[in-house]
Design a protein around this nucleic acid. Structure first.
Length: 429
RNA sequence: GUGGAGGUGGCCCAGCCUGGUAAGGCGCCAGACUGCUAAUCUGGUGUCCGUAGGACCCGGGGGUUCGAAUCCCUCCCUCCACGCCA
């Protein structure tokens, strides 16, 4: 959520921003109109209340009689006027809030202007793409051949778009999670494990609600949402808090399942690249405003380190204005190379949201004990999304005989195992 | 789920029964004073509209009233006890 004062001061800058982001400006116009009328009525009601407060005090001291009755009657009329204004103001505030909550963050100055994902800018390429002397399989085939996954049975119990890992598939998943969390701990993040369902205040705080509400699973009876990304529960842990400067930076990491309805996105890929439920390890940071840009670069480095230690080639994209998500001011995507797919797969997004989420979730800090509290800056980055990392591991580390070599950094988490090999006999489990 | 207690500025807490427009303390800041960053005294320390000034704020929402922290309804949360339970 943007600062209404900033919008009032320079509405034309906000208009330009929306156009750069490839968004309409209707909401801005509606917001400004509602705000103008709201301010007018606010002043009007302030005057009416002032009168009523003074007269009410007099009434309390007056003796019974026609004079007192007349005053009471007069004040009853004033009360009606106030109530009428209040009703209109409530409407205006709802309009204002609805529009304010639906206006995206302002892209940082160094974010390239572009209409969609074709105009993102590649800022870094890391690693050598492996040259295969055989035709590399895609992950789906590998996982089936190695008996690591069962799509049908997952569909049976949950529907299409879900999958069940088994055997070395499940163990590799767990190894990756443990590796990511251990690395983030070394990088200075404190591990948390939060609830996987969150309330509407939480999804509003980080900006998924209302504009992405159709992509989240909603538990109607309890009005709760299934976690769409760990950014939501983890960032909102500090909802409503006022931190001290000594508290900052707060660096948290969490492993959490994430749920996406993926409405309108057809499953263009068989396998586990786009699914309704997937695991993700996330980094979330709360920073002093002056330090958030450095923190973004550092956090991106933390995510990159994981891919480097896994020995997976990747590149880094700086997202353009048209492809940026709603809440962020600047965002890098890390895409890992998947030779079986013959393309890059997005496995991390690292963004600085500035005070956009903090203003929604009321997360503040006091620069000094006597100074007024200010909003913190929030950042989040995946480190990393599991399914696509697993795809990259399997496809990059596959061998001609159909086996997969386990990257060295993961072996301690798999009891020293070095390879995943096809099963000798096929049994149900 | 049942019963009880509770939710008041950054923190603690009074006021509620009996409606009259939020007291006090701690912390922090400024000023005064004093050898002193200590003690003491004075003032400041929530949000909104704003030039002034004013309005609002007692967990959220609604109601009664000229006037609600206070009375009524409703929802949420916390603590304690009991119940149920992985």
């Amino acid at each position: 959520m943007l600062d209404i004062d900033v919008i009032r001061a320079a509405p034309e800058k906000i208009r330009e921003m929306l156009i750069k982001r490839n968004k309409t400006t209707e909401r801005l116009d509606a917001l400004l109109e509602a705000d103008g009328e709201w301010r007018k009525l606010t002043n009007e009601n302030n005057q009416l209340r002032k009168t009523r407060n003074a007269v009410s005090l007099e009434i309390g001291k007056m003796p019974k009689g026609p004079e007192k009755d007349a005053k009471i009657k007069e004040m009853r009329g004033v009360g009606d006027l106030i109530a009428a204004n209040d009703a209109r103001m409530a409407e205006l505030e709802a309009i204002r809030k609805d529009n304010l909550l639906n206006i995206p963050n302002i892209p940082a100055d160094d974010v390239p202007v572009g209409k969609d994902d074709t105009e993102n800018v590649e800022v870094k390429v890391w690693g050598e793409r492996r040259k295969f002397d055989f035709e590399p399989k895609n992950h789906s085939q590998l996982m089936l051949d190695l008996d690591m996954v069962d799509f049908e049975r997952a569909t049976k119990i949950a529907g299409s778009g879900f999958y069940c890992l088994k055997g070395d598939g499940a163990r590799l998943e767990r190894a990756l999670i443990c590796f990511f969390l251990d690395m983030h701990r070394k990088q200075g993040y404190k591990e948390v494990f939060t609830p996987i369902v969150v309330n509407t205040a939480a999804v509003t705080g980080t900006g998924q609600y209302p504009n992405l509400k159709d992509d989240m699973y909603h538990l109607e009876k309890d009005d709760l949402w299934l976690n769409p990304t760990a950014e939501v529960p983890v960032t909102n842990l500090l909802q409503g808090d006022i931190l001290t400067r000594e508290d900052l930076p707060v660096k948290l990491t969490a492993y959490l399942p994430s749920f996406r309805r993926e409405v309108g996105k057809h499953a263009d890929t068989a396998g586990i690249i786009r699914v309704h439920e997937f695991n993700k390890v996330e980094m979330v940071r709360f920073e002093e405003p002056s330090k958030s840009w450095d923190a973004l670069e550092e956090m991106r480095g933390h995510a990159e380190e994981l891919l480097q230690l896994l020995g997976l080639p990747y590149h880094v994209l700086l997202l353009c204005t048209g492809d940026q998500s709603f809440s962020c001011a600047k965002c890098y995507d890390l895409e890992v190379w998947a030779p079986g797919e013959n393309r890059y797969l997005e496995c991390s997004s690292c963004s600085n949201d500035l005070d956009f989420q903090a203003r929604r979730a009321m997360i503040k800090y006091r620069p000094e004990p006597h100074l007024k509290s200010e909003f913190v800056h929030t950042l989040n980055g995946s480190g990393l999304a599991l399914p696509r990392t697993m795809v990259a591991v399997l496809e990059n580390y596959q061998n001609a005989d159909g086996s997969v070599t386990i990257p060295e950094v993961l072996r301690p988490y798999m009891g020293g195992q070095e390879r995943i090999v096809p099963p000798e006999t096929r049994k149900t489990f």
